[in-house]
Amino acid sequence: MTGETCHLFEVGHRACGGCAAALVARTILDAAGKNTIVVSSTGCMEVFSTPYPETAWNVPWIHSLFENNSAVASGIVASLKKQGRKEKVIAIGGDGATFDIGMLCISGAFERGHDFLYICYDNEAYMNTGIQRSGATPYDASTTTSPAGKCSMGNRRPKKDLPMILAAHGAPYVATASVAYLPDLKKKVEKGLQTEGPCYIQVHAPCCTGWGFEGEKTMNIGKLAIETGLWVNYEMEDGKVTRAKKVVRKPVEAYLKEQRRFRHLFKPSRNEAEIAKIQAIADWNAEKFGIDIKLKK
């Protein structure tokens, strides 16, 4: 038998079965190759891949703190430049590290124009600490700090539009991707690495444990997010949207009803008003990015 696998992201990591973040890590390294230095934020991916001394990373890898990976990356890029070395630098953070606590460092690093690729695996809440709300948590999602209850429908705010914020910093390449479309993610990682300057990729990474679905459904949930227009896969070059994945859209409830975090929208009774608000978010996305495929009648 020659069933040996050899990935730069190694077997034996402690991610949950069906974990999208683990798939993201492996896909990033498959795309980036061994000539890459990775800087990880504190978070699920960091924890499940590096309990001392069992690192799953076969490339040079560093973790410092929760919020400073892009500042650490800035230093690494400067150091490599000074030494005349050619390794690529990738910073990886979850949505908490990226949207919230690391915002200052990311903004600084992007404004300064360091040549590195920042990848956010976006599972839409603080999963490592137990599913608390972040700035990436979508409207109406129930988390442990935005629980749905008698007088709450869950998270009250829509997702922060981080890709646009970073594009506004002058990032030459900004893209969104999904774990449900791995070849697309791989291509985007390659493009981000080839583009000089600070680039950003935000990867939708459905979390079976945090969102409440079976691990085998990770890809399905990711696809449904795209097919309903609640997540759009697009690319921005020099501040302009140059490509967006088109779909024949399904109603948002196809996505919502598969997840425990949106259960309160359907039980004890269907909340038409709230579902309509989420549908409006999808409609707005569809219009903004022009993703609707018009079917001929």
Binding site: K34, N35, T36, I37, E46, V47, T50, P51, Y52, P53, T55, W57, N58, V59, P60, W61, I62, H63, S64, I76, E87
Partner: peptide, 12 residues
């Protein structure tokens, strides 16, 4: 940090 001799730094 060196791709010729990859190591992990700052494990938990």
């Amino acid at each position: 940090l060196d791709s010729e001799d990859p190591m992990s730094f700052g494990l938990f």
